[in-house]
């Protein structure tokens, strides 16, 4: 079969090259931006690498797991006291939600509720007369929860997300690529700012 002359022309060759470049460049940029965004979100599960100190921080996910364990311990104590029934149910529900949450935003919402329920629990339990064993358990589990909460508050994950959004995501051409291909910025633990 004879190849048409038009296909052998330089004009066609350059046009084809331009088309390939114009199509592949944004697709490649999209893949890169998505990959970079996912890498930032990985810091929530695996910790954030701190370049200055050459170490990786603890992950928020692991601290949430500690908080969940502490909540479970307190729940078992709360089931033995009628005064703690309501707040124990709240803690139980919040812990269930935390265990079942898939997105970082949902995890934050559940954690926020759990933290609030924990504070209510501690304010009520301080007025109750507990057995020595219960008292010791409350002390240990509450300490674990508070340590987890403090560690989450200090965690550099949200800073890394904010830096990425400011330095990369909201700048040209990432902002255009993100709007064209509907790429979401990484979720911070506490909502995007």
């Amino acid at each position: 079969m004879k190849i048409p002359d038009i296909l052998k022309s330089r004009v066609f060759a350059f046009s084809l090259l331009a088309a390939v470049v114009l199509i592949s460049t944004p697709l490649g940029a999209r893949a890169s931006l998505k990959r970079a965004s996912n890498n930032v979100e990985e810091g929530f599960y695996n910790g954030v690498y701190i370049e200055d100190g050459d170490y990786t921080s603890g992950s928020i996910a692991s601290y949430l797991s500690d908080a969940s364990r502490a909540a479970l311990g307190l729940i078992t104590i709360g089931t033995n006291h009628a005064e703690l029934t309501d707040v124990t149910d709240r803690m139980r529900t919040a812990r269930e939600d935390l265990l079942g949450a898939n997105s970082i935003g949902d995890k934050y919402a559940a954690y926020h509720t759990l933290s609030s329920a924990f504070d209510s629990f501690m304010s009520i339990v301080s007025d109750l007369s507990l057995t020595d064993s219960e008292g010791e358990s409350v002390e240990i589990y509450s300490e674990l929860f508070i340590q987890s909460r403090e560690a989450i508050g200090r965690n550099p994950y949200n800073s890394s997300v904010q830096n990425f959004i400011t330095e990369v995501f909201q700048r040209f051409p990432a902002d255009i690529i993100a709007s064209i291909f509907s790429i979401d910025a990484p979720e911070s633990f506490g909502g995007n700012t």
């Binding site: 797991s65 364990r69 479970l72 010791e136």
Partner: peptide, 11 residues
């Protein structure tokens, strides 16, 4: 370390 006598809370 021995002692403790308390569940770690995990399951």
């Amino acid at each position: 370390r021995g002692g403790g006598g308390r569940s770690g809370g995990g399951f």
